[in-house]
Design a protein around this nucleic acid. Sequence first.
DNA 1: CGCATGAGTCGTACACCGTACGATCGTCGT
DNA 2: ACGACGATCGTACGGTGTACGACTCATGCG
Lengths: 269, 269
Amino acid sequence: MTDDGKGTASAADANGEAGVRPSVWDRPERPARPDRNALSREQIVRAAIELIDREGPEALSMRRLAASMGVGAMSLYWHVERKADLLELVADAIFGELDLPVEPSGDWRTDLRLIALATRALFIRHPWLLQSMGSGVPHTGPNFLRHVEFTFASLARLGVPMPMMLATAGAVDSYVFGSTLEQAMEANLPSDPDERSALSASYIAAIDRGDYPTLSTMRDIFLDWNESAEATEERFIYGLDALLDGLGRRLSDAGYLPCTEEHDDGEAS
Amino acid sequence: MTDDGKGTASAADANGEAGVRPSVWDRPERPARPDRNALSREQIVRAAIELIDREGPEALSMRRLAASMGVGAMSLYWHVERKADLLELVADAIFGELDLPVEPSGDWRTDLRLIALATRALFIRHPWLLQSMGSGVPHTGPNFLRHVEFTFASLARLGVPMPMMLATAGAVDSYVFGSTLEQAMEANLPSDPDERSALSASYIAAIDRGDYPTLSTMRDIFLDWNESAEATEERFIYGLDALLDGLGRRLSDAGYLPCTEEHDDGEAS
DNA sequence: CGCATGAGTCGTACACCGTACGATCGTCGT
DNA sequence: ACGACGATCGTACGGTGTACGACTCATGCG
């Protein structure tokens, strides 16, 4: 915020000609001399994750974080250049929770399905992550790349060429991302039941107010629509499998599938 | 921010028993006496959109917005209860730009495809909207509901039952959402070419640093990967059609399709 | 041993944010 | 003419990110 990065300093010295700030990942952690109780990036990131999980993402301020570690606010800035950097580190640390097999199984479909489910589980465990993902942060951290690597690797060994690979992997990623985001948004709603019902009331009121013929038809269904977590998961998988079917057909039409496929559903035969 | 909604007032009166604040849409605009130069919600929202489009979403502060309208900051609060409300209004106003046919064409596939493309175009025109969408805002505005209405209407007349309808429409929505979000994130990257190349350099560096065998293989492809807007759109449509294929197959397997279908292999038009 | 060095920590200050509160102004119904 | 009230605005409070300079203190060197 404030004044867009370069403060009074760079306003003084000419203009930022060498002003491109390298990414966090290129400015590695301070060499870590073991003054036995020195802070470290890792400690800070851990504390940040804990704080966010406990009090939500908007509770993460440098001051509060520092306070939760029993430390002065500005001390953090020795280990981290800016809050945005900290957020990037935090996001990547979360991606580190993804436990993927070291190498893909060889079946692209089960591989993509696996990573989709794992990623979804991750996002549901830390709903605030999605929010940060959407905020224009580049995300080139090592753990995130591991995700990308796994996805591409499972397709690369089929010989699928780059653009098709990108399209296939990207489609799955997008679906997971969007689908989980929508669900996580619901998880971000107020926990207080009064407020929740007030919210759904406002939904109903909105339907009753405007002219939405189809929605009106389903008014009562909406009214006590309390989808269980399992049902939501089922819905997610339904769409995922539909997408994978479509993608698989395109792959095999293009000749990149060992015709063993026969994507379950068993019609036609 | 500050103190979580209920200020000193509700702290005074017992405890927030009637403390659930109704949504913006239930607290309609002030009755509008025409003191010929009075502000109005609409003016404020328009100015906000203009400001965001011009300077990005984080430039939208109540003070700056008011200043851009030649008005005191607190004047806005007569017409809008809180900044969050303003954001909801803004988001819904943008959704108003969606120009959908009054009623669905009758072919679910072209309908869903149409709304997908329209929604995507919308999000690309205002990349910051996605960001706000992901921030836990309920989104029950009239224009957003028009979107939902249209989606459901196109499926409802096939007789598709509720859960399947939700799954189908939700899958498409999720795909559009996630896919466009990923692309909009790229649009949020710095416009300065130096910073852009620095960023891609950091990407390359990251690949070279860690052990990502597949990504390393494609290192050079990544390096000068400058996808055109058309190519990105094509990729989007590729995934969209794959998804629609899979969903369509499930619909027809369940018997909800006038068997005239037989989802075009190639491209529709 | 004494001491300079520099890593690491922190207090203070600045600009900016959202918004509660109360003063104020202009117009209208009476 | 005069209250009432719709509408605007100035000020103030507690919060934010972070630049800057002062401070502590373990370590290396003489």
